[in-house]
Structures are given as structure tokens and as C-alpha cells.
């Protein structure tokens, strides 16, 4: 599959105006404004192939939205290059916009006072969609996202979940090659999140639409995106399959052993003791490949073992531990 998004050493530096206190400060600010450079994105490179679904993850202020804005043509990079479908988005904003769909979780493209169907009709004019193709896409979206029951209701009367479904449908009516989603599940309840996630995974699989998704919710990524790009403080931390994240961040599995009686100090090769309480012992396992049987076999003979378990750290735990370690 061909590369459709490329970011080469992309940085974005904002010049933030310094607010000076008092009236004299305000006047000075107007006549001779002082600015402070804020580095939102620093030297980030990645490439995305057609049909991929990529989660772009990071804490608040990590530069996720800035990267999405550069890929969608809203902002120009300060240094480095961004290419989307062979174009520099900000230079060819209109041509780029015709081939992408964008959903911002906290904003809507729908007309507040009018029925959803009116906004869909407007999309037909905005994207110059052939009427037959429009009818086909619209029917498909209505069916897949179950929009039929509220298509003719004013947007202001819809629930957040219904609005998000309608927004996603609107972004896909023109059949974009890439769908950018900025926090699409923010504020949604569990059921609505599930509908959105399942739909996005299906669109990616069936239509081959490339999906770039920013989120705080790791479950979004686990259910939609096999690949994860993680950023923090504007820098790239990780780019790869979700399953490699644990190894890459040095997250180790935990072995928990429960004995009938206190076994005293226990040593297992390739496992480091990390906790002990009464008849329980806990170890961090160095190697990913070792099985539970391997580890139990390494116990000294005659040890009164009652139960044993091996825990994989959850993605959320891995990332939380990483951020906490970084902030400490």
C-alpha cells in the first residue's frame, strides 16, 4: 500500500504574546509586543500507508491537535514538511480538503437549528458530490450509523451521541480517502462510544478509509487502531504496533505466587522480587517469552506453592506509569 501521509522532521513553534500587567503594560504590548516561543511539535517524523488506522495519543498540550491541524491544512509547519496525498496541505488547502474528512469531537459541522438532513444536503454542495453518489453514500451512512430515526429532527434536539454519529456521517458523505478525528468519543456514554468505535473500525476495514485518531481514551485505540503514535511535550515517544508498546516502554509482566506457609526469601532466575506480604510474593519478569510453567519450574523443590498467576500490564497502565515516571 502506498504512503499517503508523510511528516518529515516537522516542528511547530507558536509565538505567544506576553501579557504585561497594568495599563502601561497593555499599551507597551500594543506598541511593542513581546513574544515567547512555544514549541508545540518538535522534529516529528512518521509515514502512514493507505488503509491504516493510527491512534495519535498524548496528554493535554502534547501537540496532538497541532499535528492534526498541520495535516488538515489549518496550520503550516514552522520547519520540516508535511505531505498528505502528495500535497502540502496548507499550500493546497482546498484540494486537500476535498479528499479528507475531519471530525472535531468538541465542535460540530451541523446546523444547530435545522434538521440533520439539511446539513447533509449542504455537504453535497460543499464537496460537489454527484447526486447519485450522494444518495448512495447517504443511504449507507444512515443504515450503518442508524441515523434514520432522527434525520429530520433539528440538531439542537439530538443527544451528544446522535450528534457525533451525524457529524461522522457528514464527514464521510464525499467518500474521503483519509478521515481525521480529534477526540471523537469525548463526552459520549459507554453505548455511544461503542457504536462510534465499531463504526470506525468497520469503515476502515470495509472502505479502506485511512483513519487518524487523537484521543485520551485508550480503548478507542485498542478497538480501532492497530498502530499507535505517542507524543509528549511535542516529541515522538513511540510509533509502532500497539502490542509492542509494553516492550518498548520496558513494562514487565508480574508473577504473583501464593504459598500455603511463609516460604521465606524466594529467588527465581530472570525474575526480580518486587513485593512480599505474608504468604504472597510478587516478581517482575525480565523476559517476555517465559511461560508460567517455566517460572514455576524455577522454584526450589518442595516449596509449598498454592497458586500462581502472571499478569500482563494493561496499555493504560503502561502509559500512565510512563507519564508518572516522566513527571516525577
Amino acid at each position: 500500500m502506498s504512503l499517503i501521509i508523510q511528516a518529515d522532521s516537522v516542528s511547530k513553534i507558536f509565538q505567544q504574546r506576553k501579557r504585561l500587567p497594568g495599563l502601561s503594560g497593555t499599551l507597551r504590548g500594543l506598541l511593542k509586543p513581546e513574544t515567547v516561543p512555544v514549541r508545540a511539535v518538535e522534529e516529528i517524523s512518521f509515514a502512514i500507508r493507505a488503509g491504516e488506522a493510527v491512534g495519535y495519543l498524548g496528554p493535554n498540550g502534547a501537540g496532538k491537535s497541532t499535528m492534526i491541524k498541520m495535516l488538515t491544512g489549518i496550520l503550516a509547519p514552522s520547519t520540516g514538511k508535511v505531505h498528505v496525498l502528495g500535497r502540502q496541505p496548507v499550500e493546497e488547502r482546498v484540494a486537500n480538503a476535498r479528499e479528507i474528512g475531519v471530525v472535531f469531537g468538541q465542535r460540530s459541522q451541523l446546523w444547530w437549528d435545522l434538521p440533520v438532513s439539511d446539513s447533509f444536503d449542504l455537504a453535497r454542495h460543499i464537496y460537489r458530490i454527484d447526486p447519485a453518489r450522494f444518495a448512495e453514500n447517504r443511504a449507507e451512512m444512515v443504515e450503518m450509523l442508524a441515523l434514520g430515526s432522527f434525520l429530520d429532527r433539528p440538531v439542537r434536539q439530538l443527544s451528544l451521541g446522535q450528534r457525533m454519529r451525524a457529524d461522522i456521517a457528514m464527514a464521510l458523505l464525499h467518500g474521503p480517502k483519509i478521515l481525521f478525528l480529534d477526540e471523537p468519543t469525548i463526552g459520549l456514554d459507554v453505548v455511544a462510544k461503542d457504536v462510534v468505535r465499531k463504526f470506525l473500525a468497520r469503515i476502515n476495514r470495509q472502505r479502506g478509509t485511512t483513519i487518524i485518531l487523537t484521543t485520551h481514551d485508550l480503548q478507542d485505540i485498542e478497538e480501532i487502531c492497530p498502530r499507535l503514535i505517542m507524543v509528549d511535550d511535542g516529541r515522538l515517544l513511540f510509533d509502532g504496533p500497539l502490542r509492542s508498546l509494553r516492550r518498548s516502554f520496558g513494562a514487565r509482566r508480574r508473577l504473583r505466587l501464593d504459598f500455603y506457609t511463609d516460604p521465606g526469601p524466594i529467588w527465581i532466575g530472570g525474575a526480580r522480587p518486587v513485593g512480599s506480604s505474608g504468604t504472597q510474593r510478587e516478581f517482575e519478569v525480565d523476559e517476555d517469552g517465559r511461560s508460567l510453567i517455566d517460572l514455576i519450574s524455577a522454584l526450589p523443590p518442595g516449596t509449598p506453592l498454592r497458586d500462581a498467576s502472571l499478569h500482563e500490564p494493561g496499555i493504560e497502565e503502561v502509559i500512565r506509569t510512563h507519564y508518572q515516571r516522566r513527571r516525577a
Partner: peptide, 13 residues
Amino acid sequence: RDGEFDMLLVRPV
């Protein structure tokens, strides 16, 4: 401030 203008820039208009 609210990002409404960003929404315009991602449309081919």
C-alpha cells in the same frame, strides 16, 4: 478562540 474557524479551513471552500 473556539475553533469554529478551523472548521471552515478543513472544508473545500
